[in-house]
């Protein structure tokens, strides 16, 4: 699929979708990275750890996540999650190594989805809606598939520069 067959509006919509997903990942990573921190309204946010999230895991893979919550190297997992969120976020925002960023996003979203597959169909405590099988993680993963399929890094983003730069180098090599 090339961008030549897409209208300007379609291309813009795809890039906006990628930017929004990228922002979501980057801010999640940033928020976890700066913790312990305070909200601007003056409330302490505390240190972030995935332990609570893992302990609360539900669904068919819950046991795996519960065991992970108890490992001694959970700090490393936390650092990896934060780094993953930030790198994926930057990749999608900037359109740099976009396909790799999409793959990373899908990996993380798959973990988040599998740790809490909404099977009850009821509203969960603290949740803002009721979900049955399909939740926002799954929908975001589908959005990432779209972003990846249309290779949006070639529509707008730093991948374009990489591509042009490589083309120019190849042209120069042929000319010399």
């Amino acid at each position: 699929m090339t961008s030549d067959r897409l209208s300007g509006l379609q291309q813009a919509a795809l890039v906006v979708l990628r930017t929004l997903v990228g922002w979501h990942f980057l801010y999640e990573g940033y928020y976890k990275a700066v913790a312990p921190a305070w909200s601007r309204a003056g409330y302490p946010l505390g240190h972030w750890s995935s332990r609570g999230y893992l302990r609360a895991a539900t669904g068919p893979f819950a046991d795996v996540f519960h065991r992970l919550a108890g490992v001694t190297w959970l700090d490393m997992v936390d650092h990896l999650v934060v780094a993953g969120l930030v790198l994926v976020g930057l990749s999608l925002l900037l359109g740099l190594f976009t396909q790799a960023g999409c793959a990373g996003a899908l990996g993380l979203l798959a973990l988040f989805y599998l740790s809490a597959i909404p099977t009850s169909g009821a509203m969960q405590p603290g949740g803002e809606g009721a979900y049955l099988l399909v939740n926002k993680n799954l929908i975001e993963a589908a959005a990432v598939v779209v972003v990846s399929s249309f290779r949006t890094g070639r529509i707008a983003g730093l991948d374009l520069l990489r591509k042009r730069s490589r083309a120019i180098q190849e042209t120069e090599a042929l000319a010399s």
Partner: peptide, 29 residues
């Protein structure tokens, strides 16, 4: 090509500014 490539930069700058303004303040108790 460059202008096209950096088309997302204004969005990034705006969202970054929003993050600085509304995001958390680093620090513990």
């Amino acid at each position: 090509n460059f202008l096209k490539a950096v088309a997302t930069t204004p969005a990034l700058a705006a969202l970054g500014a929003a993050a600085v303004f509304k995001g958390p303040v680093r620090g513990g108790p």
